[in-house]
Amino acid sequence: MQIVEGVCVWWSDDEGWGALRSTALESDVFAHFSVLDGPGFLSLQPGQTVRFEVEPYPSGQDGYFFRAHSVSRS
């Protein structure tokens, strides 16, 4: 997996997921709240900087073809 830096594009606390963006990738990245580093229920804010591992997601998820792992907030 590749480690990249980016920003949160949007986030839904109600749905528990959102999208991240990095200039190192050609499209946005699916991120689920369960991959955010830290205890308890965590969320992100649009524009918040993040660092994360990314992997291709060939089957796709809601139109995203990459998914994030180990997301840490900057």
Rank of each mutant, 00 (worst) to 15 (best):
D28A: 10
V35N: 00
S74G: 08
G40K: 08
D13K: 14
F52T: 05
W11L: 10
A31C: 15
S72M: 13
G47W: 10
F66C: 02
D28R: 13
F41I: 00
S12V: 12
S59H: 12
D62Q: 15
P58Q: 05
R51P: 04
G6H: 04
P56Y: 01
Q2K: 12
P56S: 11
S72I: 14
D13P: 06
V54S: 09
G6M: 07
F41N: 05
D37P: 02
T49C: 03
E53Q: 12
E5W: 06
V35A: 04
R21C: 02
L44Q: 03
D28Q: 14
P56R: 14
Q61H: 13
G60C: 05
I3V: 15
P56C: 10
Q48L: 09
D62W: 09
G16V: 03
R67F: 01
P39M: 04
S74K: 12
G40E: 06
V50T: 12
G6K: 11
D28W: 04
L42S: 00
V50Q: 07
A24H: 11
T23F: 03
G47Y: 09
G38S: 05
L20G: 11
V54A: 02
S27F: 00
H32R: 14
L36E: 00
G16E: 05
V35P: 03
E53D: 11
G38P: 06
R21A: 02
P46S: 09
G60P: 03
V4Y: 02
Y57G: 00
V7W: 04
A19S: 15
H69G: 08
W17M: 04
P58R: 10
G60Q: 12
G63S: 06
G18S: 12
R73H: 02
L20F: 04
M1E: 13
F30C: 13
S70R: 10
P58Y: 01
V71L: 05
V29E: 04
Q48W: 13
